[in-house]
Design a protein around this nucleic acid. Structure first.
Lengths: 223, 223
DNA sequence: GGCAGAGGTAAGAAATTGTGATATAATATC
DNA sequence: GATATTATATCACAATTTCTTACCTCTGCC
C-alpha cells in the first residue's frame, strides 16, 4: 500500500488513476493544479506523485522543482506526445519515469508498481513470471505455457487470465471484470465474459479448475 | 558494473544519463566535447562510450574514427532523427547501437545493458554478431546475412530488426516501437510499422517467422 | 419439478493485421 | 541543378482473427 498524489487538471484522468490505484491497494489524494499539488506535498508525505505537465496555476515542471526543494518523493510525469521532450530534461527534475498521454491505465500502473518496488526493496530481482503448478505466465513476453507447452491465447483471453491471476483469490464480479478489462465505456452483455471464461478454460486444459465459478457473483482464480 | 564515458555538450543530458547509469550500478565519466572524449579514451579503458554526434570541437563521427584507431570500446551514438543515416553508416564507424533523440532514459539504459551483456561472462570483448540459425546480424557493420547470403535492408528495416532482436522474446507494442525507433516525437500512424514489418519479413525469407504478430498488441522477435 | 444462472455452440459483426498501390520525401546520379 | 532512384509513409481494401450475441442445454438449488 502506498500514498499517491495525483495532480492533473482533468477530472476524468484523476478518476481513472484513482480507480486503478485504489484497486491495487493504494491510497489516492487528488490535486487539480500545480499549486495545490505543491501545497499538499509540503504538508504530507506521499510515496509517489503522478503529475501532468500541463496544469493551470503552476505547470508540472515548476511544481516539480518546488517539490524537489523539500522532498525526494518519486515522481511520474504525464505528458502529451507533442510536448517538448527537451524540457523534460531541461531541468534538474529527478523524475522517475514519464508516461505519454494517452496512456493505458494498465501501463501506468505497471510503472507505478515499478517505481514503488524500486523504493522499498533496493533492487530486488522481481520475478516477471507467475507460476501455478505447471501453468506459467511470462508477463514481458506475454506468453502462457502449460507444462512447458506454449498456449495460444487471444488478446482478451490473455487479458482476462492476467487480470484474474493478478487479483487471485478475490471474488471478481462480472461488472468489475467488464469495467476493468473491457473498459468503463463498454456497453454490452455481461454474459460475454462467460464465453471468454469458457474459451480460456479450454485453453488452460488440465489447469482449467484454477478458475472457479462463483454462482450469482462472478469468477475467481484460486491458487 | 561498467565504466561508461558519456560525451555530450549538453550538461543536462549528461546528467540524466549519469543518474540512470549510476542507478544501474555503473561508473560514469563525462566529456563535454569530442576532443575531450578522444583524450579520455586514449588515457583510460572504458567499457562503453555513449556519444552525441553534434558536439563542439570534434563531432561524434570524427571522435569515433579517432577512438577506433586505438580501441574497440563499444560505442552507442546519440543522434537527432533528422541527422542523416549515410553519415552515420557510410563510413565504417563500427558503432554498436544508436539511439534517436529524443529518447527515454529507460530505453537508453536498456540498450546500454544490451551492449554490455553481449560481453560474455568473463571480461571478453563485446561480441558484435547476433546469430539465430542461419540469420546473422553483424552490428558494427550493420549487415544481415541469411545462410551466408547478404540481405539488403533499408535503414528502417535494419533498425526495426535490430530493435526487435535486442528486445527479443518481449512483447513490443506499436507505441513502444514507434517511440524507440522513430523517436519520441514522431507523429504518425502506428500502422506504418506494419508495412515495415511486412517488408522486413519478406527480406528475411525463410526466417520470417522469427517475427511473431501479437494481435492487439504489436510484434515480438521469438528466438 | 421448476427456476435461475452458468456452460456450450455457432454465426454474424467487429476489429485487427497483411498487402499492394500510391504519394511524398530523401538521396544518388548524371 | 535536373533527373532518376530509392526509401518512407499512408491509404484502401482484402484476409484473417477475434468478439459478441442469441439461443439452447445443463446443473445446482429451493
Amino acid at each position: 500500500m502506498a500514498k499517491i498524489l495525483v495532480a492533473d487538471d482533468e477530472q476524468k484522468i484523476r478518476e481513472v488513476i484513482r480507480e486503478y490505484s485504489e484497486f491495487n491497494g493504494h491510497e489516492v489524494t487528488e490535486a487539480a493544479d500545480g499549486m495545490a499539488a505543491v501545497g499538499l506535498c509540503k504538508m504530507n508525505d506521499y510515496d509517489l506523485i503522478i503529475m501532468d505537465i500541463m496544469m493551470p496555476k503552476l505547470d508540472g515542471y515548476s511544481a516539480c522543482k518546488e517539490i524537489r526543494k523539500e522532498k525526494d518523493t518519486p515522481i511520474i510525469m504525464l505528458s502529451a506526445r507533442s510536448e517538448e521532450y527537451d524540457k523534460l530534461f531541461g531541468f534538474e527534475l529527478g523524475i522517475d519515469d514519464y508516461v505519454v498521454k494517452p496512456f493505458s491505465p494498465k501501463e501506468l500502473m505497471a510503472r507505478v508498481n515499478a517505481v514503488l518496488s524500486r523504493r522499498s526493496a533496493a533492487q530486488q530481482p522481481v520475478s516477471n513470471e507467475l507460476t501455478f503448478d505447471g501453468l506459467k505466465i511470462n508477463i514481458p513476453a506475454r506468453t502462457v505455457t502449460i507444462d512447458g507447452e506454449k498456449v495460444d491465447l487471444t488478446p482478451k483471453e490473455y487479458d482476462l487470465l492476467f487480470y484474474l491471476v493478478e487479483h487471485r483469490n478475490l471474488a471478481l464480479s462480472r461488472d468489475q471484470l467488464l469495467s476493468d478489462i473491457w473498459g468503463y465505456d463498454f456497453y454490452g452483455e455481461d454474459r460475454t465474459i462467460d464465453t471468454h471464461i469458457k474459451n480460456l478454460r479450454n485453453n488452460l486444459g488440465k489447469y482449467r479448475d484454477y478458475i472457479v465459478t462463483l454462482r450469482g457473483v462472478g469468477y475467481k482464480f484460486e491458487a
